[in-house]
Design a protein around this nucleic acid. Structure first.
Length: 711
DNA sequence: AGCACGCCGACT
DNA sequence: GTCGGCGTGCTC
């Protein structure tokens, strides 16, 4: 018997020789045979260009396959196929091509001929005639892959849910006719609100950065914008950071439009339901989509509006390679699909402020007096504030906070926000709480066991640090968790029920009756009728986080909580324990998130920080990082910061993709480029990684564009 | 990555 | 003459 691997001479060997000969001829003969013998091919457009479902960077290109005649009808652009892929797919045994593994892919287009020199393998199977990879989705996925130095296949994995035969076999519901144009309702509080809605309804692409008024109306307002888009005959997509926010918008949409006009796309619903709903969207049966970041690629037909709520929330950045952020994906869709944009939240990210500054979007805000009436009264208290009351001292509350809680409890629930333990800053000025930064590159300072101060970006040792804000020379940190705070408050207010909402169990709503609701940031329940008061405790801990965005993030967490409190007109009060002269604290007191973002943006521009410049991180073993950077053809003026040793995550925390394997110490370098060079930076890094893969040199290196923890 | 090809040394 | 170990290169 011949050997299993076709290496022995004889009939098979002769066949191999023949094949090699035919390939040789194919490379030189202009009238070369294009396929293997014996395959009956599709009469027209016999070539299928395929993107194979393999995320490896050096395979990030198309491969051509021959279309057998019996697959001709189904093998249309966008369908899922299986193909033989890999070395050896040209092996011929007993007259058939074998070898190479069967892998999935998508047909990108059908062609009359291939530019590949050599004979084509045939498609192995059309998995389903459903064209899931639409031209819009392909273009979007390509753009996202390029921006993030990732591969098309990786992005498609995020964008197209796994197939489910049962879901596919069922017909999607008949599409409903467009709804009536909705009334503007509370959008009238914004001078530009009604015009924004009519622009959506008439098919235009208005783009707005929406600073939402505090209070409970944003879900209904977002629903109204979606309804206006539907009324104009186009589709709408809204992405929100978590399941609770999705639920609120879902309810608002159902209240406004009834059931059946929208779907909720989240990763939580099971595979069959998820694919069924996704298909209903792709087929045009449903024109409106609401979901978490998993919905950002939803193939909405004739997209007229992309909306994003609270784009500063870290949950909007995908954890799967290449880790695209929903804001960037939706912006790309607004640009290329001509859709309107609604970037909303109770605060404003610097990225959103930049969109306004560059003229890409217009601000959608309410007049000052409307803001003042809707927002609660905010008071600040330094933590060294004198504590006269013994009970207040027991609860570790400054007197002002104690009074506000006691007064608030007479009228309804009182929210107490406490930073999570572990949410601790690296180093901040003891006197003014300003984060300690490197005097050379403005990177965050870390304390070594030796007592030395080391920059987390450039690795320089900081001698004799002095706070640039107040001249202080001492540094510090620590925080008390929400559970212990709840216990202490329970003792201080013995007659009042205490509820907690935190990481392990998050409450979505609380009743209007008086209660203390202790919550970690981001987990605050919505109170019926609004909270009477809120205490934002240990604010300095949020501000001192070792992150570029610490100020912006603290303001976001405060305002998101404070927006659940009744307006000043109804007696709503907020007390924040943080130094009143700090910029985010002032922005909270004045309720001016947009102004804060504009000033923050100016600072970032001056210091060369994102989003004004673009950054990417490169991590890996020290030798690998150095090798990759030396081989990369970075754009002109690119700056390399570091490399420095990557601070290991605290032991016990779950390993995340991109973390070094246990026992290895990795370096991290940051690369920074000027505005407009982001694409070139991503391309250069991708090329450098690919070159190493092809040469098989060195160990794994990870590249991340827009690293989230600019420590 | 995965897989096949092929060169080379070892053993029947 | 045949087997199989591992370095090298490619994937339509």
């Amino acid at each position: 018997m011949s050997s299993e691997n076709g290496r022995s001479p004889g009939a098979e060997g002769e066949q191999l020789a023949l094949i090699r000969e035919s390939v040789r001829r194919a490379r030189t003969d202009p009238a070369r045979p294009r396929t293997w013998r014996g395959a009956a091919l599709a009469a027209e457009l016999p070539v299928a260009r395929v993107v194979v479902n393999k995320g490896v960077l050096h395979l990030d290109r198309y491969f051509d396959y021959a279309v057998p005649a019996d697959m001709d009808a189904d093998a249309r652009p966008g369908v899922r196929v299986r193909v033989r892929f890999g070395a050896g797919s040209h092996t011929v045994r007993e007259g058939r091509r074998e070898g190479g593994r069967l892998i999935d892919g998508f047909i990108v287009e059908r062609l009359a001929e291939s530019d590949y020199v050599g004979p084509l393998a045939a498609l192995a199977q059309v998995l389903s005639p459903e064209p899931v990879l639409t031209p819009e989705l392909l273009a979007l996925a390509r753009a996202v892959a390029d921006r993030y130095a990732g591969s098309l296949a990786d992005v498609l994995q995020l964008a197209i849910p796994p197939r489910n035969a049962r879901a596919e076999s069922r017909p999607s519901p008949e599409p409903l006719p467009p709804p009536e144009l909705p009334e503007p309702g509370t959008w009238r509080r914004y001078p530009e609100g009604p015009a924004f809605l009519t622009a959506l309804a008439r098919g235009a692409g208005p783009r707005a950065v929406w600073t939402a008024l505090p209070g409970p109306h944003w879900p209904a307002e977002t629903a109204t914008a979606m309804a206006a888009t539907l009324a104009g005959g186009r589709g709408a997509l809204t992405v929100l950071p978590d399941g609770r926010a999705v639920e609120r918008l879902d309810e608002a949409l159902t209240a406004l439009l009834g059931p059946g006009r929208h779907v909720v796309l989240t990763a939580e619903s099971g595979p069959e339901k998820r694919y069924r709903q996704w298909l209903a969207v792709r087929r045009g049966s449903v024109r409106a989509v609401v979901g978490t970041r998993a919905a950002m690629f939803a193939p909405v037909r004739d997209l007229g509006l992309v909306a994003l709520w609270d784009d500063g929330d870290a949950a909007l950045s995908d954890q799967q390679a290449p880790q695209p952020h929903a804001r960037e994906v939706l912006l790309q869709r607004a640009r290329t699909e001509g859709a309107g944009l609604l970037l909303g939240g109770h605060t404003c990210t610097t990225e959103a402020a930049q969109l306004v500054e560059t003229g890409f979007a217009r601000p959608l805000t309410a007049p000052r007096e409307v803001v003042r009436a809707a927002a609660p009264l905010v008071r600040t208290v330094g933590e060294l504030d004198e504590v006269r009351d013994a009970a207040a001292r027991a609860a570790r509350l400054p007197s002002v906070a104690w009074e506000a809680a006691r007064e608030g409890l007479r009228h309804g629930p009182v929210l107490v926000q406490v930073p999570r333990r572990g949410y601790v800053p690296r180093l901040a000025c003891e006197r003014c709480r300003e984060a300690a930064r490197c005097s050379a590159c403005a990177g965050p300072l870390q304390a070594r066991d030796s007592g030395d101060l080391l920059c987390g970006w450039c690795g320089r040792t900081e001698e004799r640090w002095q706070c640039p804000e107040c001249g202080g020379r001492r540094l510090r940190a620590t925080v008390v968790g929400h559970r212990r705070t709840a216990e202490e408050l329970g003792r201080a207010f013995p007659a009042v029920p205490v509820r907690t909402s935190g990481r392990d169990h998050v409450l979505s709503t609380v009743p209007a009756s008086p209660a203390l609701v202790v919550s970690t940031p981001g987990a605050e329940p919505v109170a019926e009728g609004g909270y009477a008061a809120a205490l934002l405790l240990d604010g300095w801990a949020l501000l001192g986080r070792p992150d570029l965005r610490a100020g912006e993030e603290a303001l976001r967490l405060w305002m998101t909580a404070a927006a659940l409190v009744r307006g000043a007109e109804e007696g709503g009060t907020v007390v924040v324990t943080a130094a009143p002269e700090l910029r985010p604290v002032q922005a909270l007191v004045r309720w001016d998130p947009a102004g804060h973002a504009v000033r923050e943006l100016a600072d970032r521009a001056e210091l060369g920080f994102p989003p004004v410049s673009r950054m990417a991180s490169v991590t890996g073993r020290p030798a690998d990082v150095a090798d990759l950077l030396s081989g990369a053809r970075l754009p002109d003026g690119a700056e390399v910061l570091g490399p420095v040793p990557l601070t290991p995550p605290p032991s016990g925390s779950p390993r995340r993709p991109g973390d070094p394997p246990p026992g290895e110490s990795w370096d991290r370098a940051l690369v920074r480029v000027r505005p407009g060079q982001g694409g070139a930076l991503a391309a250069a890094l991708k090329e450098a990684v690919t070159a190493r893969l092809v040469r098989r040199e060195g160990g794994a290196v990870r590249v991340r564009v827009d690293p989230p923890d600019l420590g």
